[in-house]
Design a protein around this nucleic acid. Structure first.
Lengths: 66, 66
DNA sequence: TCTAAATGTAAAATAAACTTTACTAAAAGT
DNA sequence: ACTTTTAGTAAAGTTTATTTTACATTTAGA
């Protein structure tokens, strides 16, 4: 699954650690998702989208293999 | 996490098995999510919402504890 | 340049999602 | 009433997400 977390973070100008803090996960979890090492849970995806003031589908996009 | 899968299924008039089939999981997985025994992955949540022609946030809602 | 902040990474452990098989019960159709 | 479809459940197993600790690298600022 693709995502635009890096771009959204840049817009808000917040670090991975700051985002992690706001959605209550570790910094490593945000890093792994941002680098697409794995896909988040729906709960986490929704929290992240909410921080960015966007819909889940605007931040995360399904890919072929998903 | 709450969801309106049952209602959306009723609108489309499809069974849990039919939905499971369309999003490529087992019937038990749909049943468990529908009964809120656990929350789906983001990938699955997006596929389910897509079947219903709705946004993820329209089908799934974060709760206090999430 | 020196330092601090931010990011990338990795291994081991835990938790949570999902599968498989299988059985029960309810609901709907005939 | 009988049969079929749909839904609920459960235990054991596999896979994936997330945490923890820790260290290395890059970026930015003073």
């Amino acid at each position: 699954m693709k995502n635009t977390i890096r771009v959204e973070r840049a817009i808000l100008n917040i670090s991975q650690a700051e985002l992690a803090d706001r959605v209550q996960v570790t910094r490593q979890t945000i890093n792994a998702i941002e680098l697409e090492k794995y896909a988040p849970s729906a709960v986490l995806a929704m929290k992240i989208a909410r921080v960015f003031g966007k819909r889940v589908e605007e931040v995360f996009q399904l890919e072929e293999g998903d």
